[in-house]
Design a protein around this nucleic acid. Structure first.
Length: 116
DNA sequence: GTTTTGACGGTCT
DNA sequence: TAGACCGCCAAAA
């Protein structure tokens, strides 16, 4: 538990319920980071952690970070696998599937550092 | 030590 | 309504 700004991002991202998506701005605003780029950047170094970064998209609901994944299609595949309808690399029901960061309080805590 | 880029967002034109 | 510009903080070159 480092309590760093990116660790907070990890926790919120890990708390995103399956079949649900959110955007960087919401997390950035919730954590008062001041910039959505901090969120995306923090997730960029999530490579060694088991964080569902595929559930995090930009404000337009587009899978902007798919290019960073081991496989660009993996992000969309995972979203569809959880029931999220993705078309043209963007979430169609984004506004409906949108998940508010504040709801993560209901998820209590989550060990994102626990890989395996 | 300085400059540029980056998984973005909001506001102005 | 749509397109373009600026701003946020941090890390790498």
């Amino acid at each position: 538990m480092k309590n760093s700004y990116f660790d907070l991002v990890y926790r919120v991202t890990a708390a995103i319920p399956p079949g649900r998506v959110t955007n960087y701005g919401a997390i950035a605003d919730f954590l008062a980071l001041g910039s959505a780029r901090m969120v995306g950047w923090a997730l960029n170094k999530c490579g060694h952690l088991n964080i569902p970064a595929h559930r995090v998209v930009n404000r337009k609901g587009e899978l902007s970070g798919r290019n960073m994944f081991p496989s660009p299609t993996m992000m969309q595949e995972k979203l569809e696998q959880e029931g999220v309808v993705v078309e043209n690399d963007k979430v169609t029901e984004f506004k409906t599937l949108f998940w508010h960061p504040g709801d993560y309080l209901n998820q209590d805590d989550y060990d994102y550092e626990k890989d395996t």
